[in-house]
């Protein structure tokens, strides 16, 4: 494929998805923007390697993911976020309908392993096929299915725990109960 205006338009259209994926990997706006920028430059430089008729988004996601893991290994940046601290700093606009607490979901996602998080987001949020997601992550389709399933299990557990905590007794009640024993 050559660098046509159509490809440029397709890359522009892919930017929001690329950035959302980068944010969900890094939980750091500046780092995510750097990753997207490098992805665009690398993709444009190697555009002749892109096969016409295949999924441009999947190809771009692959480049972004490879860039992320390459830097991750090189710089040993801390991207796992077991305490959810980084997730708390990544602020996004609140959900209008109020059905989903975006910040709670981001915190729960941050507690998943990177490989589970990326698999779940590619399939359940980005809407990618298992085949494309497997290509992006460089693993077998069965591995992606397994990672998605485990990620869903973890998320269900994490969000249920948080919901149970919300419904639990408040601190004063807990203190009174402890004093009574």
């Amino acid at each position: 494929m050559t660098a046509t205006p159509e490809v440029r338009e397709a890359m522009l259209a892919a930017l929001p998805s690329l950035r959302a994926f980068a944010l969900s990997l890094t939980y750091n706006v500046d780092y995510a923007d750097d990753l997207v920028q490098e992805t665009v430059l690398r993709a444009w430089k190697n555009i002749d390697r892109f096969e016409v008729g295949t999924n441009l988004n999947a190809w771009l996601f692959t480049i972004l993911r490879n860039g992320f893991y390459s830097q991750h290994r090189k710089k040993r940046r801390e991207v796992e976020d077991p305490d959810g601290g980084r997730a708390g700093r990544l602020t996004v606009a609140p959900e209008q309908n109020g059905k989903c607490d975006v910040q709670d979901m981001l915190k729960a996602l941050a507690k998943l392993s990177l490989v589970q998080r990326e698999a779940l987001l590619l399939i359940a949020a980005e809407g990618m096929s298992y085949e494309d997601a497997a290509q992006v992550c460089g693993v077998a389709i069965g591995t992606i299915k397994s990672r998605v399933n485990r990620a869903r299990m973890c998320l269900a557990q994490l969000l249920a725990v948080e919901a149970a905590e919300d419904l639990g007794p408040d601190r004063m009640t807990q203190a009174a109960l402890q004093a009574a024993h």
Partner: peptide
Amino acid sequence: DLRATYEALLLE
């Protein structure tokens, strides 16, 4: 909930 969260990131 995942899609809603991801959409919030897409709208940034």
